[in-house]
Computed example of a mutant assay.
Amino acid sequence: MITNIINPLLQAVSFISVWYLYQTMSKVKPLQGHLLLLFLSYVAAASYFSLVKIVVDPLLFLVADLALVKERSFYHRLLYAFYPTILFDMATRLLSIVIIPHVSHIKGDITLNTSLHILTYILAPLIIYLMLKIFAVDLNQVSSLDEVWARRNWLRSTAFLAVYYVFFTVIHGLNSNPYDS
C-alpha cells in the first residue's frame, strides 16, 4: 500500500528535476495545461513502467518535444530527451549504489529501504548540480549549438549511457547479493 503512494511521489520528484534540466537546455515554455498533462503522463508512465524507466523517460520527453516545438533538428530533440534523463538516472544510481551505502555502511540494495530510496530522489538534484558545476557544463548554452554538435554529443551521451548503465547494473548486482548475511 505504501509503495503505491511513494512511487508516484518519487516519479513526481523525478519529473521536476528532469523537466528543469530539459527546459533549461531546450528553452521550451509550454502552457500550464500542457505542463500539467505532461506531468501527469510522466508520473503515470514512470510509475507503471518502473522497471524500464530509463527507456520510458527519454521517449516521453521526445514525444513532448515533438508536440511542443515544431522547428527543431532531430539530433537536438534526441539530445534534449536523453541528456536530462541520463543525468537524473546517473545521480540516483550514484547515490543508491555508491554514496549512500558507503556513507551509511549498508551492504546490499538500499532501494529496498524505502526511506533511503526516497533520499536518493531528494538528493539527486544536488548531485546533478554538483556534477554540472564540477565539469563546468552550462545547460543554457546547449540550445544555441549547431546540429553537428548535437549529433556528436547525442551519440556520446548515448554511448556513455550504455556503458554506465551496464557498469552500474553489474555493481548493483554485486552489492545486492541475497546470500550475504
Rank of each mutant, 00 (worst) to 15 (best):
Y75G: 02
Y75Q: 00
H76M: 08
H76Y: 08
R77E: 03
R77W: 01
L78A: 01
L78Q: 02
L79G: 05
L79T: 05
L79V: 04
Y80A: 10
F82I: 13
F82Y: 09
F82V: 15
F82K: 02
P84V: 01
P84A: 11
T85N: 11
I86T: 10
L87S: 04
L87E: 05
L87V: 04
L87I: 04
L87D: 06
F88G: 10
D89F: 14
D89C: 14
D89H: 15
D89A: 15
M90H: 09
M90S: 15
M90C: 10
A91L: 11
T92E: 02
T92A: 08
R93H: 12
L94C: 02
L94E: 01
L95K: 07
L95E: 00
S96W: 00
I97Q: 01
I97A: 02
V98Q: 01
I99D: 08
I99V: 07
I99F: 06
I100L: 09
I100P: 04
I100F: 04
I100R: 00
P101I: 04
H102Y: 15
V103F: 13
V103P: 01
V103I: 14
S104E: 13
H105W: 08
I106H: 06
I106G: 09
K107W: 07
G108Q: 11
G108D: 06
I110Y: 00
T111G: 09
T111H: 07
L112I: 10
L112M: 14
L112A: 12
L112R: 12
N113V: 15
N113S: 11
T114G: 03
T114S: 10
S115Q: 13
I118V: 15
L119W: 03
T120V: 12
Y121I: 08
I122Q: 07
L123W: 03
A124D: 01
A124M: 00
A124Q: 07
A124T: 00
A124K: 00
A124W: 02
A124Y: 02
P125C: 06
P125V: 11
P125T: 00
L126E: 04
L126M: 10
I127L: 15
I128K: 06
I128Q: 00
Y129N: 02
Y129L: 14
L130T: 04
L132I: 04
L132D: 07
L132E: 03
K133D: 11
I134L: 14
I134T: 13
F135Y: 15
F135K: 14
A136Q: 15
A136S: 14
A136E: 15
V137Y: 13
D138K: 12
D138H: 11
L139A: 01
L139S: 03
N140A: 11
N140T: 13
Q141G: 15
Q141T: 13
Q141S: 13
Q141C: 08
V142W: 00
V142E: 03
S143L: 09
S144C: 05
S144I: 03
S144L: 15
L145I: 02
L145Y: 06
L145H: 10
